[in-house]
Amino acid sequence: MYSEILEGGKIMISANEFILFYNELFKYLDKNFGKKEVEKLWEGIKNTYCKKIEKLVKEKGLKGMNEYWTHTLSEEGGRYKLTLTDDEFIIDMHYCPSMGKLLNTHVEPYKDYCGHCPALYVDPIEKYGFKVDYYIISRDKGECRMHVRKEQKT
């Protein structure tokens, strides 16, 4: 059985204040137009910016997911563990670099800030025969889990 575990603990942050503006835009759209407009924005970002992950999942499956998040999280930072086996890919996020940015500044996180990740990543993965379960463990601590497994054929 193949398995690989990667643990990361470097704290890095995105380009300047991006995460803060990102968060504030969610709040602005929700306040002025309702939650559906926030979800529409997430849909737009997914359709524009998730082609890379989709391509990796299509071509390499679980290994593609591992490749994508190994690269992305090594740049963005945070504290996490990635687990890859023959049948599963798991991200155990112990301290999300994105939420961490909000928690360490005066900026109040959007009430459903964590919702943007499943909105972006679930569809591009499930499209290719996988099942994704997302668990928001603690928004206040930036802790969550994404568990991907091959869909059972009935």
Partner: peptide, 26 residues
């Protein structure tokens, strides 16, 4: 800015998403 911001490295790909957000809002 909060001091925490200055102690971090950068992920420049977010400039592209910021660019997208401007276009999206308009």
């Amino acid at each position: 800015m909060d001091e925490y911001i200055y102690s971090q490295s950068v992920h420049k790909d977010f400039h592209g998403i910021m660019n997208y957000l401007i276009k999206y809002l308009r």
